[in-house]
């Protein structure tokens, strides 16, 4: 699914990023960075849904090669986080939904989680 379509489903706002053409294959909804690092597979583009807006979230995405992050409940990060995202070409979105609601909406549209994607191959 195109990132642009996900933005519509989540009624999200773009904070950083020019193109929403990127294809997203799976979702990682998580507030534990270690779990993000251990579950995401890099070969397939994933989107990270999280409540954490500090720079380490973007750093984690960079290391795990996650191309896009969406923050929950209208949270918007500070400059340091945005700068890091710009530098690494990571798209940042913000939605007013909660983590549970956002996950549910995307799951309903057929986007799987990381472990499911592995099985579906």
């Amino acid at each position: 699914m195109k990132l642009g379509k996900i933005k519509e489903i989540l009624e999200a706002k773009v904070i950083v990023g020019a193109s929403l053409e990127r294809e997203i294959r799976m979702i990682c909804a998580c507030d534990l960075m270690s779990d993000v690092l251990s579950c995401v597979q890099s070969r397939f583009s994933s989107l990270l849904l999280t409540n954490l807006i500090h720079p380490q979230t973007v750093r984690t995405a960079e290391i795990a090669e996650i191309p896009a992050i969406c923050f929950m409940r209208g949270k918007e990060p500070q400059d340091l986080t945005m700068d890091l995202a710009k530098k690494n070409g990571i798209v940042l979105l913000s939605t007013s939904f909660s983590l549970y609601e956002a996950s549910g909406r995307l799951y309903k549209e057929g986007l799987p989680g990381c472990s499911e994607y592995r099985e579906a191959k």
Binding site: L32, M33, S34, D35, T50, Q56, T57
Partner: peptide, 10 residues
């Protein structure tokens, strides 16, 4: 901050 959950070394 989302770290220190005891999964690092693992």
């Amino acid at each position: 901050l989302g770290f220190g959950a005891g999964m690092g070394l693992n």
